[in-house]
């Protein structure tokens, strides 16, 4: 039996070492960035921040944007991080009401269009993306159907069973598209968004739980049956970029788009307020701003940042994307989603 005890002891010691290698400690020169799971910047980007400021950035990812905001709210008395990046206008009002952020005016805030900015600079806009209907150019032309030009077209019989959207209760672009329809067909209008959605369901709209399922399973480009999909205005350049293509196989319907703005903010309760402010400044600096298009497929908030060629050549930005102010979203989000779900389930 002796042999077994020795090997057991060795195993336990090895386990201890493995476990020890899994734990980490923060040091005083670190600044912690809490962000969502889709966050990405080019390798070495934060090394430049360290060279410039002496602070090392530790990135902590925390699920999707909703989970991230929840985490920050639950831990606000003993925060996990110094800066949060990636909160959008869907949850912004709630986060501000909870007192999550301390105002900080970024050094290059003047480069940001005023309509993106938030009162009192509680948070700093970093990037934006437009959620728009994308269509499969080749598939529509094979069917002999013209691309839809506005939201009203989608209820037309010509587009029966052609559109896939995402569930606004489980998907961020899904919620953005619902908000676009609410902006286009307000509740007090003669034809309200709920009537629009009733017509959309009558016209055979399909609902996917998330963007990946809609775009990579149900969209015709991926072998599915639906040539119209709710995605981003940046999806066509992404297709070109990842596929090394000359022309985008998809295009964007520029009506009925919804603009999602992502913000960064200094978290209240941080003991490294100065470093946190510097990190927010850095996120708005041209270095980072020129990196975000090809790492996260969003548009920089800083207007002095140059766009990559593939964005310039293959992006059609909607002339008038809708947006709904954060307070109105906060006051109605739950009710809107529940009413939408009721309409969806009654079909």
């Amino acid at each position: 039996m002796k042999h077994s005890f020795v090997s057991m002891a060795v195993t336990i010691a090895a386990a201890g070492l493995l476990i020890a290698s899994c734990t980490s400690d923060a040091t005083p020169d670190e600044v912690v960035l809490l962000t969502h799971e889709s966050f990405a910047l080019s390798d070495g980007m934060f090394d430049r921040f360290t060279e410039e400021t002496g602070f090392t950035v530790v990135v902590q990812t925390a699920g999707d944007a909703g989970s991230m905001v929840n985490q920050a709210i639950l831990t606000k008395d003993n925060p996990l991080a110094d800066v949060m990046y990636g909160i959008d206008n869907t949850f912004l009002s709630r986060a501000i009401d909870e007192g999550l952020f301390t105002a900080h005016t970024a050094s290059e805030i003047a480069t940001v269009p005023t309509d993106l900015r938030v009162d009192g600079d509680i948070v700093t806009p970093i990037d934006f993306g437009d959620v728009c209907i994308n269509y499969d150019i080749a598939d529509l032309s094979t069917r002999g159907i013209a691309p839809p030009s506005d939201l009203a077209d989608l209820t037309d019989d010509a587009y029966r069973d052609l559109l896939v959207v995402q569930d606004p209760a489980t998907s961020s672009p899904g919620l953005a598209f619902l908000l676009a329809t609410i902006a286009a067909y307000p509740e007090d209008a003669g034809y309200s968004w709920s009537e629009y959605w009733t017509d959309l369901f009558a016209n055979g709209v399909s609902v996917a739980p998330d963007w990946s399922d809609a775009y990579s399973n149900q969209f015709t480009l991926a072998g599915g049956t639906r040539p119209l999909v709710v995605s981003y205005a940046s999806s066509p350049p992404a297709e070109v970029f990842f596929g090394d293509l000359a022309e985008a196989p998809t295009a964007v319907m520029t009506d009925g788009c919804y603009r999602q703005v992502e913000y960064a903010g200094v978290l209240t309760g941080t003991e490294r307020g100065e470093a946190a402010g510097l990190l927010v400044d850095f996120l708005l600096s041209r270095e980072v701003q020129e990196d975000v298009p090809l790492t996260m497929f969003v548009f920089p908030a800083n207007t002095t940042a140059a766009l990559p060629d593939v964005f310039v050549a293959h992006t059609t930005l909607p002339p008038q994307p809708s947006s709904i102010d954060a307070q109105t979203i906060e006051a109605n989000r739950e009710r809107w989603i529940q009413e939408w779900t009721a309409i969806a389930r009654s079909q």
Binding site: E37, A40, V58, T61, Q71, S212, Y215, F242, G243
Partner: peptide, 28 residues
């Protein structure tokens, strides 16, 4: 794994999720 706030140390399922999150036939 994706939910627990933690420094970047991606696992295979997280890598798959990242690829699935980008448009295009190549990432898929």
């Amino acid at each position: 794994t994706t939910f627990i706030a933690r420094p970047a140390s991606p696992t295979i399922p997280i890598a798959i999720f990242r690829y699935l999150g980008r448009p295009g036939a190549a990432p898929f």
